[in-house]
């Protein structure tokens, strides 16, 4: 399963945080990969509409995530506006954010000296 996570919005635009992040579940720790597999199926991700949640009139600075998942020949993207109301989708987004963070940390052996 291949996952792409793109963050947009928030109180400022950070080019470094806005870059889409990709993960292969095969590269993740097995328990994380399993949790994500389960999360995708619990959230019925592939049946979700392209956008979930609309900004209220006058709302500003909300964060929006675009989650794209490729699995077994299927590919689907869902845009999620925070706060995400639906509990399964919210749980999935949390899992993906956490996995991305761990993935990034292990890939870059962060923090580097001098920072």
């Amino acid at each position: 399963m291949r996952i792409e996570l793109k963050r947009e919005g928030g109180v400022a635009f950070f080019p470094g945080l806005a870059r889409p992040r990709s993960m292969e579940t095969g590269e993740l720790p097995p328990e994380t990969a399993e949790a994500i597999q389960r999360g995708v199926s619990d959230a019925r991700f592939f049946e979700q509409p392209a956008t979930v949640g609309t900004a209220a009139r006058g709302a500003a600075d909300q964060t929006r995530y675009t989650v794209t998942i490729e699995d077994g020949g299927r590919r689907h993207s869902v845009q999620l506006l925070e706060p995400v109301e639906e509990p399964h989708l919210r749980a999935l987004l949390e899992l993906l954010k956490k996995a991305d963070k761990e993935h990034r940390a292990s890939a870059h052996a962060h923090p580097s000296p001098g920072r």
Binding site: G10, V11, A55, A56, R57, G58, A59, A60, D61, Q62, T63, E82, P83
Partner: peptide, 17 residues
Amino acid sequence: HYDENYDNAFWDGERMV
């Protein structure tokens, strides 16, 4: 104290988070 480690503040049209 919205969420854990949450990196944002926003206005949802009625309130601040």
